[in-house]
Amino acid sequence: MRQAGGVREIARWLCLNSQELTAFCLLLTALTAENFGTVAAWPAAHYRPDAGIEGIPGVALVESSKPRRGPEREHMVPPVEDVPEELAALLVDANPEPRLFRSPLRVYQLLLELTEVARRHGGHDLALAGFRATGASREGRWTRGADAKNIARWSAQHGFPTKEPTAEGIEPVEARRLRQTGIERKRRPVAHTRSTMNDHYLARSKAVVAQSRTVVADALRAQVATARERRSVPVLPASLVARAATDLDGAAREADLGPQVLQRLITGQQDTVLTGCVDHLNNPTTQPGEPCAESFLACLGCENARALPHQLPLQITALDQLNLLRAHVDPATWKARHAVHQERLEDLVGHYRASEQDKARRDLTEPQKRMINELMSGRMDLR
């Protein structure tokens, strides 16, 4: 042993040093999102519910402690998990050597194997055990755990910045940031409550806030699109109206209406100023059998409404009046009271060509114009 360098030299070959222990602790912190200090105190003793049987999801239960949680809640048993077999199959490549770092459990198992000698000679049961050669002693000394103070030294040895990000955007290696990243990736509580995760860890993340805004915006846009599609008034084209003159039953089937209902719609017997109503006794907002008491503007979003070509002059006139009114109403009032009606009228008028819209403006009669004036002034609403 003396010829080979003594215990100090041989132990360096057989055991992990302080920097390697730091690297293992950083890797487990990144994989599990546990605190660096909690991982540094993990014991080698653990319980395997899977009994190490192949085909069963691998997991090791490790007893740990987080004193900041208080004496009644500091003791924890976090699961150190392997990846599912389905995912493990995707990690297999042409290399016959298995991927040692594919999961927290594999890293933990490798750590226990590499630290067995140091743990036995050091006289403790911590998973992180190593040997440190010191200048004061020819023998060196056995070490236990990992010290966060060594992170800066490990970073400097491996080309990472220790204080500020580099010009290329490389960030310093920090245990706190590794845990933050792990929680953002997992999106599940790790040694804390769900409210702490949401209010403390995720709320301060710029990436999570940006993702949340995107998700919420997409969901709101989808809901608005669905609502508009559901409440859009079907427009019965002129071709269907012309067909009804010779084939009422066929036109009714195409419009998904009863023949008599379609006939009354075409003749204007069921007009409600801007649209026609299929059944005013079956309104979604009233009890069945009771007459509809909604404003005629509400017909633009009612499932009973149908739009026909002879109503186009009224729809265009109402839309023109709304566009004129917008310049004289404050934005908040406009959005609350008139914006939805304008959007729905634009949708109805948009079904017609420009030539048809021009003809409808010319065909507007004085009684129709007075009717729109009364509608827009509110004189046609029930008080």
Results as ranks from 00 to 15, higher is better:
residue 84 P to M: 04
residue 141 R to S: 09
residue 131 F to P: 01
residue 79 P to H: 11
residue 112 L to N: 07
residue 107 V to D: 00
residue 86 E to G: 02
residue 118 A to E: 03
residue 96 P to L: 01
residue 129 A to C: 09
residue 89 A to Q: 05
residue 79 P to A: 14
residue 127 A to V: 00
residue 110 L to V: 04
residue 100 L to N: 06
residue 106 R to V: 01
residue 115 T to Q: 02
residue 151 I to W: 02
residue 152 A to Y: 12
residue 102 R to Q: 13
residue 152 A to H: 13
residue 88 A to W: 02
residue 94 A to R: 09
residue 141 R to G: 03
residue 111 L to T: 03
residue 139 E to A: 15
residue 114 L to Q: 12
residue 142 W to F: 11
residue 88 A to V: 02
residue 160 F to E: 10
residue 94 A to C: 10
residue 139 E to M: 13
residue 79 P to I: 10
residue 155 S to M: 07
residue 82 D to V: 05
residue 130 G to K: 04
residue 76 M to T: 14
residue 125 D to C: 13
residue 113 E to S: 12
residue 97 E to Y: 06
residue 97 E to C: 04
residue 114 L to P: 01
residue 129 A to R: 10
residue 117 V to Y: 11
residue 153 R to W: 08
residue 115 T to M: 01
residue 95 N to E: 13
residue 98 P to C: 08
residue 148 A to R: 11
residue 109 Q to K: 09
residue 113 E to V: 09
residue 110 L to N: 07
residue 144 R to Q: 08
residue 159 G to D: 04
residue 98 P to E: 06
residue 120 R to M: 07
residue 145 G to L: 01
residue 134 T to S: 14
residue 139 E to P: 01
residue 86 E to L: 03
residue 128 L to I: 09
residue 111 L to A: 05
residue 152 A to Q: 14
residue 124 H to Q: 09
residue 89 A to N: 07
residue 137 S to I: 04
residue 94 A to P: 01
residue 143 T to W: 05
residue 107 V to A: 01
residue 77 V to I: 15
residue 91 L to N: 07
residue 125 D to G: 14
residue 149 K to F: 03
residue 158 H to E: 00
residue 151 I to V: 13
residue 124 H to F: 04
residue 147 D to V: 00
residue 104 P to V: 09
residue 149 K to G: 05
residue 154 W to V: 00
residue 94 A to F: 13
residue 120 R to H: 03
residue 97 E to W: 09
residue 122 G to C: 02
residue 132 R to L: 14
residue 75 H to S: 15
residue 135 G to H: 15
residue 106 R to M: 06
residue 101 F to R: 13
residue 117 V to I: 11
residue 116 E to H: 08
residue 155 S to C: 05
residue 125 D to R: 14
residue 106 R to E: 07
residue 110 L to D: 08
residue 114 L to K: 12
residue 148 A to Q: 09
residue 141 R to M: 10
residue 159 G to V: 14
residue 82 D to R: 08
residue 113 E to T: 13
residue 134 T to Q: 14
residue 77 V to H: 15
residue 75 H to G: 14
residue 90 L to D: 06
residue 155 S to E: 09
residue 125 D to W: 14
residue 85 E to Y: 06
residue 147 D to E: 06
residue 146 A to L: 02
residue 81 E to Y: 07
residue 159 G to R: 15
residue 114 L to S: 07
residue 80 V to I: 12
residue 75 H to Q: 15
residue 129 A to H: 05
residue 98 P to I: 07
residue 148 A to F: 03
residue 158 H to K: 13
residue 79 P to Y: 10
residue 137 S to D: 06
residue 145 G to K: 08
residue 86 E to I: 04
residue 79 P to L: 11
residue 76 M to R: 13
residue 155 S to H: 15
residue 113 E to F: 08
residue 136 A to S: 15
residue 150 N to L: 13
residue 138 R to T: 15
residue 85 E to I: 03
residue 83 V to Y: 05
